[in-house]
Design a protein around this nucleic acid. Structure first.
Lengths: 195, 195, 195, 195
DNA sequence: CAGTAATCGAGACGGTACGTCCCGTCTTTAT
DNA sequence: ATAAAGACGGGACGTACCGTCTCGATTACTG
């Protein structure tokens, strides 16, 4: 995927690439996945469609790439895993509830089911979203708040997925109350030793 | 939504309705949501598109209706919540991994984000999928395996959502090993008293 | 190609068909073949592109169909073949020189060379353009101005093609002077007996 | 248009120029005008597009240039205008019917209608194609087969254009039979005195 | 003999048309 | 009134081509 730099021919414009991804994110936030159009992106980024298709073979690929560009969640370090998690998940909640970006993720997951080739590509983006939580949990293990034997991936799933579930799939409220209960239930299940 | 039968005019064909839903499920399993076309369903069910749109106002509505037709998960009662859950989630895993039906759900969730009116409609389908697990947990509370104060909805989320997460959003394996760990971690977090 | 009327299903709109052909001719006259766009036609005729492609499989087909709609050349009957021909050819000259429609014909001929399937389709349009001249010549034979053995198709070619040649392929002027010389030379060659 | 040789900088490659024109003719014969692509020519001639556009400002210019490279028609001198013409027109017929090159000319004529600037450029090519016929007719005038007052340009049109007409615009056969009739009719019209 | 300048292949770029596809609606005739 | 059949408006998708533009690398004339 990376272009062997230094080869013959005009190099691909990094400016164009950035402009496309920026426009994609902007329009995605305004219009959601379904409202986003390749032509609209091209117009907004002042770029031709060919330039887009040269980099990403379809709309889905482009959107995933744009997603991967999103800034990481802020990852506070309060010294206690419980408050760390509550804070990071609260940001997660806020962001997801205030932009149409939220609805994009399930759509991408749906496309992934049809196009296995997208799997790895999308996974990269997902892993990035999980990263701050993962780091917190690793710190907690080092601090002794969680057992050394803790399965980190499992732990991430235990605390994040109930939120994701409510946000994307059900009508049940995903509020601060629920968030705290999830964190406490999960931590207790993981063998948490509060200080 | 139901037509008052007995009025003038030809009554709606129940056979057509069934044929449409069957074709929808069949094509959904073969092609996924994106590959499914109203024309293809009409052709497969030997039905006109008007007949479809007379019953459901859009493709999403039709797909959700077809989904709601899926049989409930088998809900064993072994007497112990741990084994109950493991069994029902194993069925869930098997079904979801062997049909493209899996990919449909996230897509529907994505549409829901864009069309709030779908929320309730989709929620009905989701609740049905959660029902067996919910019943198990209620039995466990009655048996004293779980505290009387248990928040059942939270409990359902705690055990089901990590699986859903892995199946839909990540490449991490959702296998029996993982399933058992989720059940145990969640139960422990919920204050489970094994017998 | 003709639709069996009376079958099931919504019949094709004759109004749409007419609107499309009219818009095509209008835009063809304004913009020429290269400037004509399927989207522009659709917009001007207030019709969807699907409606166009349902009738004609490509831009070339549409343009030929529109051409076939052009009104026949006025076909005066002065009683003398020489003046008949001069008048009809003068109209031909005037029309061809005052609209971009002229340039369209060679382009169509070029496409025909690439797509033999267009041959018959285009030929229909061409024959119509030749028709008035043909009728004049037939009248002249009946009147005895031309021999009974006259090959009419050859005769049409002899009088029309030098004009076409100059108009489309060369810079030589195609003026009244030239026109008259062509008519006289051709008639003499065909064994014309002036009264 | 010609670069003043001797200036500074790398001189233009004559090999490249030849390769481009050769590839153009080759591809033109295979694919016709519409199927010819600047990229295909570049690839076939192992040349960059810039090298092409440095020499000819557009695809049409290039194609016309390639056309002008075609060898002149063989111009026999049998001593009798009738047989001279029949022979040269037979060659013309053979060439035009056996290559898609035929279809190119009308297309160019179509472009000419849209781009007047092409007129002179294309005219040069056309004049070359007419040259042998013109020379024959001039010889015939000198020999006394045709009147001294003969308008040569008119005469060329009278004998060549009916053939061109049939080849390019109609389905009527352009065979030897037709060819002979055209020649005889035209010559008679022009006041031909057979020996 | 170093420097300058136009050329070369390769290939990206903006713009724009094409033809295909699908959704949800509408218009026929037949039950 | 409903059914099958299928046309309709609208609009996005992905492909293709033109003519322009940047690269780094040659290849000549010039100072």
């Amino acid at each position: 995927m990376t272009k062997s730099q230094g080869g013959p021919g005009r190099p691909r414009s990094e400016a164009a690439e950035k402009a496309i991804l920026d426009s994609t994110l902007k329009l995605l936030a305004e219009l959601g996945y379904g409202g986003l159009t390749m032509d609209k992106v091209a117009a907004d980024a002042k770029v031709s469609k060919a330039t887009m298709y040269r980099r990403w073979p379809s709309k889905v690929h482009l959107v995933i790439a744009a997603f991967s560009q999103l800034p990481e969640l802020p990852s506070p370090d309060t010294g206690a895993i419980r408050t760390d998690l509550i804070q990071v998940l609260e940001s997660f909640l806020t962001i997801t509830e205030n932009t149409p970006l939220a609805g994009v993720l399930p759509t991408l997951a749906g496309e992934r089911a049809r196009t296995p080739e997208l799997s790895d590509y999308l996974d990269k983006a997902t892993r990035q979203r999980r990263k701050p939580v993962k780091q917190m949990l690793e710190r907690a293990v080092r601090r002794g708040e969680l057992p050394g034997s803790t399965d980190i991936e499992l732990a991430v799933d235990m605390v994040m997925s109930p939120l994701v579930m409510r946000i994307f799939f059900t009508n049940n409220p995903a509020d601060m109350e629920f968030l705290k209960q999830v964190v406490e239930t999960a931590l207790r299940g993981l063998g948490w030793q509060s200080e």
